[in-house]
Design a protein around this nucleic acid. Sequence first.
DNA 1: TTGTAAGCGTTATCAG
DNA 2: CTGATAACGCTTACAA
Lengths: 334, 334
Amino acid sequence: MSEKVFVSAQEVADRAGVSRSAVSRTFTPGASVSAQTRRRVLEAAEALGYHVNELARGLMRNESGIVCLIVSDVATPYRSALLREVTLLLQNSGKVAMLINTDRSDGSVDHALRQAIRYRADASIILSGMPDKSIVQLCLRNGQRLVLINRDDEQPGPLRINLDDDEAGGRVATAFVRAGCRTLAFANSEVGTPSLMARERGFVAAAAALGMEVSVERHGWTGYEAGKVLAQRMLTRTERPDAVFCATDLLACGFMDAARHQFSISVPGQLCIAGFDDIEQAAWSSYDLTTFAQPISAIAARAVEWLSHPQPENSEQSIRLHAELVWRGSIRGG
Amino acid sequence: MSEKVFVSAQEVADRAGVSRSAVSRTFTPGASVSAQTRRRVLEAAEALGYHVNELARGLMRNESGIVCLIVSDVATPYRSALLREVTLLLQNSGKVAMLINTDRSDGSVDHALRQAIRYRADASIILSGMPDKSIVQLCLRNGQRLVLINRDDEQPGPLRINLDDDEAGGRVATAFVRAGCRTLAFANSEVGTPSLMARERGFVAAAAALGMEVSVERHGWTGYEAGKVLAQRMLTRTERPDAVFCATDLLACGFMDAARHQFSISVPGQLCIAGFDDIEQAAWSSYDLTTFAQPISAIAARAVEWLSHPQPENSEQSIRLHAELVWRGSIRGG
DNA sequence: TTGTAAGCGTTATCAG
DNA sequence: CTGATAACGCTTACAA
């Protein structure tokens, strides 16, 4: 198989009878080339199968066009939906996404960020995990913009996009009470992400304000299986809850399935359930889950927009978005 | 904010009191550097925060380390699971994934492949859509390796990984008959992907061999909603099917939900259902769907392995993998 | 083992 | 508007 393969701007220039620079200008938006030169260059390029080498271009411009997406558990409904949205917007604004799949181990995100630096990514968007403070500084020093989504970090520099997780609890608590529920529970995972904890705290506080106590249980990761386990724990108690707020839709689906199929508890008849994220499955008729919608499009839009714009420099780099309550059938009397 | 930011090998060399090349060699696996030089370089690099510039390295080596993943509908359970697997393996073998999200329009994949060429990706893996013949040739001429997953294309050059979709039908048909079903149906989407059509043909043929006819209906895309619509069409007929093979798990979930919640048909009591893909939701107790498992790990492994190995050149570049039947509760008498 | 120097494919600068 | 020339940060003969 042939080895020396890629055709360079020089070859195009030779064939078109112009200089390298003319070729370069032809492929640089907004550069001044005469219509004729331009046409001849394009012809030659087409004939030769020339494609700009973005590696070399990035080297010169000190701007690769690459944006790193750092994420664990990509196959999860919420994560993959966010990923879709972000990549789409990124492409529309002329960037290209580099995907780094982290595991849930400690140095994982830091490792990913180092990768981003080596490829001279213009920016990194962190969808899961938390980078170490030092590596964040390293990225910023290297001129890399950082976006943290739902990470709720305090340090300045990166753009932080978060939801009003704490306020969600209040709305659910009210709905549960209105539905006549008396024994409230919160099903959480053990991972203890700031946003998950905020949902828990908000719910507990709101319930307390209504004069009710919440039994909290935490287990495993935020997936379907953990929801089942949590249901097993909570539904075998002597004082069984008649309302559960699950920190995540996946937890809620697992919880609901266990309640119905293992304990023959009717939802919402004997048990009201609410989730968080509004994943696609929440709308499926088997679940019909009342939940809070992650404003995925808004999140992605704000992130990408911030990347494309000249930085506002001293403006507060923290955005708080609203998670809308989506009423469905898993709470009585919606 | 500071502008000239990235630290170069030269600066490291200066600080360590060695030459540029020494630095380069230190970061090139398997190059000969004395332990002492190596140590001094590493110290200087650490102190300065040096990171190899992969853009420049790729330019020299003519090998970027980038592998392009071309995929539409990333947020779909099957796609995102495959994506997770591929990115993971890619990372383990020292490559990095560039994600391009295509829509279902015609030139979309071609556009993505051009992007891949511009970034001098070492390879592209196509998970959805079909590239034009000419662009495939262009990629190959440019030394870019190509992997087509479940695309069932005939042209030589790319590695083609496919399943035995056609054989699946036979196993389902037998199971349906054994369950006592008499009125068979196949629920497909309109997209007409080779693999989807192969499932349909295989099922129809197998049923014919058993002396039964299959009513086929096609609608929309391969998602949950389309499954509901198909159910509406097929379950309102005078001669209602008592067994349905859905081309996709998502279709099956939608079909099952419509059957149960709109038509109060019990599954598997009055209606047996089978799907294809074995997405996570198929195992959820609300569905408990009998289905065929995409051998996701094997697919990813074969793809990545082929990319990393020196090409076998003349060997047949087509792999056919087996989709295992996963027995669950949506067919009677498993 | 080490340093020197050439070159990878671009773009930016600056004359013309 | 165009063309020469100098970077960009790296790797890799080749020579020491």
